[in-house]
Design a binder for these strands. Structure first.
Lengths: 215, 215
DNA sequence: TTTTATACATTCATGAATGTATGTATAGTT
DNA sequence: AACTATACATACATTCATGAATGTATAAAA
């Protein structure tokens, strides 16, 4: 065989990433050889090295591809018809969680990131990806809270930082635990419960220490 | 050099595990070679292969050593003078969290487990370790709740399963997030807050659906 | 239509890690 | 005191993944 059309080449690139996802998920990233990826895609290492520099490179490409989808997802969220910023936040979080369970490929990548790869200095993009994810979503959550405060939906002395951390803990916790023990509980109902509880207790339990000296 | 005394041999075994912890933490488990471990311990692969069968083997030994300490920790917890089972539960959880931050070696192993190794089928003990940890601690938590119900500290229709899951989500979430971004928040105060919030809302928000049809 | 760059497959050279086999000095045993 | 098992170090053989080099058929450019 030999050269295909440009569109074909782009498709084999995608096939290689698909194959990498499958093998990474099954064997773990470190244990996967480039040959396994190529074989899974019914190709040879020649094809691999044409499209990617090394394993690092295809791993990053896999993450980038998923990140693009997540970006689109963020757009969807911000295009929500909901006027209440906290309702929009709630809605988008639950949407992400729903997609995680619904889309097998997204779940595979999540499982790879949380369980099937090592966050080492040598293995950068993962660490920065996860950290940046937290930081970027922190900004979004902060914006929603600030808007809620501005429109008097939340008290002015809301401890936004603590609330953000608390929310991240909830999401990180359910997702990690569910990926670890998917049969132990229902992801959707638990996530909904957590988020609703969080928003319920938000105005009572997350006020800043301004009035701490009252007793 | 040559043969040392039996106690010496036991100590070199420990040194090898210490070295493995350090190199695993720095390079990731998959990326570490047995030679690196031996060198870190100022030994050769000959010593390694005398004490361990392969990398798997020393990795499991490392986990087992930590598990033993955790077992002792469980004993400490159950020997608590506190009579209230939920207070005992709270106390022991916060103790574990405190130890995680205080003991550098414990933290290293946690970071290895959460960030520096791959949970693959080939790489069993990790997956089972984490899962078993959840299941075993679930039993302990369940026992505490049942005792609390029996002594009328908690309502009889407490949804124990949901509460357990919820508690695990909290702990998993803070620990994971703090290991990822240690400077983003203070572990102790956040954990305390989470746990206290949990116990606060327990009797109101975690009742079973027995009375669901009332409206 | 010829040429050239592309999209791979195939082959090869290298290095690194593993496991094993062997060597050896000494702690225990008799 | 002689012997044996232990606790390693050293040396060796094998595997295997990587990366590069080369081959090649065809799409696209000229």
């Amino acid at each position: 065989m030999a050269r295909r059309t440009k569109e074909d080449a782009q498709r084999t690139r995608e096939q290689l990433i698909d194959a990498a996802e499958i093998v990474f998920h099954r064997e773990g990233v470190a244990q996967t050889s480039l040959n396994e990826i190529a074989q899974q895609a019914n190709l040879t290492r020649g094809a691999f090295y044409w499209h990617f520099k090394n394993k690092q490179s295809i791993f990053k490409a896999m993450l980038d591809r998923q990140a693009v989808e997540l970006g689109q997802l963020g757009m969807v969220m911000e295009a929500s018809s909901e006027s209440d910023p906290l309702a929009r936040l709630r809605e988008s979080i639950l949407y992400v969680v729903r997609e995680l369970e619904r889309d097998p490929r997204r779940r595979r990548v999540y499982e790879i990131v949380f369980q099937k790869c090592e966050m080492t200095e040598q293995n950068e993009p993962i660490g920065t990806l996860l950290r940046d994810n937290v930081l970027i979503s922190s900004d979004r959550i902060r914006a929603a809270f600030n808007e809620a405060i501005a429109t008097k939906l939340m008290p002015a002395n809301l401890d936004v930082d603590s609330a953000i951390t608390h929310l991240h803990v909830q999401i990180t916790g359910v997702v990690y635990l569910w990926l670890l023990l998917p049969d132990k509980f229902d992801l959707q109902s638990q996530a909904t419960r957590l988020i609703d509880l969080f928003f319920d207790q938000l105005p009572q339990h997350f006020l800043s220490d301004a009035g701490e000296h009252l007793d």
